[in-house]
Design a protein around this nucleic acid. Structure first.
Length: 494
RNA sequence: GGCCCCAUCGUCUAGAGGCCUAGGACGCGGCCCUCUCAAGGCUGAAACGGGGAUUCGAAUUCCCCUGGGGCCA
């Protein structure tokens, strides 16, 4: 039988890395087995679900390359794929359970349940629902309804069922005692289904064969299995993936900040880097290789190899990996890197409006000489902001380190004269001019190069000097040297 | 509080009784390369939570404890 899986996000926020990770693993597993992957929107929490979030989640999944075969925007045989459009189905199935005696109306008020709970706590017993509505007589039902009480529906746990075994694809065999469970609510008094119940109905009616979800749902599994039994349905296989943790080792959530996938996208992270990084959390290929294409991941991924323990999301390693992919993109599709850099420059206010062809070509040249220094597009600000500023921002430390008053000023002006004569203004002649100047002054090349770098860029780090001079162009180079010569005179020789 | 899951360097992990003097990667330190930085190469520091048991032999099996996490409340 073909594998059918699903990812079922709630559109109550943007897709976060934990959810994306789960979706990706599910997708990898499905593709490895040549199965079908369904996207289902769990929007029963109407107060917090929005269409905008739903659209954003779809967009972010697509950006990551996680594609679904059926979903809210794809016509499929088991739709609709939004829970709010399936309300009738839940009511019908709840009714089936009531008819079979597997569920019953419960009229207990929240206050009454709270009293039960407190008594249990006072007597140091574990709290379990008392079951007082379990065996109500028809007369009692009528009385409750006459009193204006609306019933919720509770699932009748067969306490004599004994041991419930969950044979998990990741965790292995886990046992629960039916006697530890109490009758749980499957439908609220307003007629809306609870998560656990809607999930079972949906997974079965959508023919899901393998349920993948976060480990936090493991405890729900025995309850769900009981419902499958009550319906007489075949149970799907389950796989609980470990939780994604924040640096505090708590389950990753919005309070950890920077957890939305689109936040990473906005910062210029590449989807292939994100996805490769995801793969390495909880799963490693046999040979310990770390960089591989999606195709390789699909081929190698085995759900049995997924680890059991929660993983901390290490943003530093992700950034390193982004550098690996950025450098790869630099060789294969440099214009893509240029686009990302343009975004970063725009974000920093160093570029405005739409970049014209000339500007794009200029950025491409900058990227060509310094792209291998970038891990993130915004690193362009660290190494090459001077390419995009009219006024060089001088790092005081760099100036203090490299400028020596009159001596430096003379050297800068001498090089200026030499560069003014270089034709064409290309790297070969430029390098010659710099080295000749050093010889003429009786110093080593680097004694010229370092101060000149500060003069032209304001900093001690950056791309090769000869390259950057060429890209900067004669006019700006001459102007900056002249300006820097004056600045040098103001610095006290150390 | 009850139930469940987890446990190797700071982090992601390899390790399914002897191959472990516990390997790799990120990060951190050093060296090389070099006009700087980055990249690259070499290299260093860095872990089996504790206690029992099984075994000739345990990171690897079992039990207890501890710690962390989750679900229900």
């Amino acid at each position: 039988m073909a594998v059918r899986t699903r990812y079922a996000p709630s559109p109550t926020g943007y897709l976060h890395v934990g959810g994306a990770w789960m979706a990706f693993f599910t997708w990898l597993f499905t593709r490895h087995d040549g199965g079908q992957f369904v996207l289902r929107i769990e929007d029963t929490d109407r107060s917090r679900s929005t269409e905008a979030f739903e659209a954003a989640i779809l967009e972010d999944l697509r950006w990551l390359g996680v594609a679904w075969d059926e979903g809210p925007d794809v016509v499929g045989p088991f739709g609709p794929y939004r829970q709010t459009e399936r309300a009738e189905l839940y009511r019908e199935h709840a009714a089936i359970l009531v008819d079979r005696g597997a569920a019953y109306p419960c009229y207990c008020l929240p206050e009454e349940l709270e009293t039960e709970r407190q008594r249990a706590a006072a007597e140091h017993r574990p709290y379990r629902y008392s079951g007082r509505c379990r065996e109500l007589t028809p007369a009692a039902h009528a009385e409750m309804q006459a009193a204006g009480r609306h019933a919720s529906l509770r699932f009748r746990v067969p306490v004599t069922r004994g041991t419930l075994v969950v044979d998990d694809l990741v965790l292995g065999r886990v046992e629960f005692a039916a006697a530890d469970l109490d009758d749980f609510i499957i439908q609220r008094s307003d007629g809306t289904p609870l998560y656990n119940f809607a999930n079972v109905v949906d997974d079965h009616s959508m023919r899901i064969t393998h349920i993948t979800r976060g480990a936090e749902h493991l405890s729900n599994t025995p309850r769900q299995f009981l419902m499958y039994e009550a319906f007489g349905w075949e149970q799907p296989r389950v796989a609980h993936f470990p939780s994604l943790l924040g640096v505090d080792r708590k389950k990753l959530s919005k309070r950890h900040g920077d957890t939305a996938v689109r936040e990473y996208k906005a910062q210029g992270y590449l989807p292939e880097a994100l996805v490769n990084f995801f793969a390495l959390m909880g799963w490693y290929p046999e040979d310990g290789r770390e960089i591989f294409s999606v195709e390789e991941m699909i081929a190698r991924f085995r759900i049995e190899d997924v680890g059991k323990s929660g993983a901390v999301f290490d943003a530093q390693k992700l950034t390193w990996m982004n550098g690996v992919y950025l450098h790869q993109a630099l060789r294969q599709t440099p214009e893509r890197v240029a686009d990302l850099v343009i975004e970063a420059l725009r974000g920093a206010g160093l570029l405005d409006g739409d970049a014209g062809p000339a500007q794009r070509a200029y950025v491409a040249r900058v990227v060509a000489i310094m792209g291998d220094r970038l891990r993130l597009p915004k690193d362009v600000l660290t190494y090459g902001d001077f390419f995009f500023r009219d006024e060089v921002v001088y790092d005081p430390t760099a100036v203090r380190k490299q400028f020596r008053g009159q001596v430096t000023a003379d050297m800068l002006l001498r090089l200026r004269a030499a560069l003014a004569a270089v034709a064409p203004f290309e790297i070969g002649g430029i390098e010659q001019a710099v080295r000749d100047t050093a010889v003429a002054l009786g110093v080593e090349s680097k004694d010229v190069i370092h101060p000149v770098r500060v003069a032209l860029t304001g900093k001690t780090v950056g791309p090769g000097l000869f390259e950057l001079i060429e890209v900067l162009g004669r006019e700006r180079v001459l102007a900056r040297l002249e300006h820097a010569a004056r600045l040098a005179l103001e610095t006290v020789p150390q």
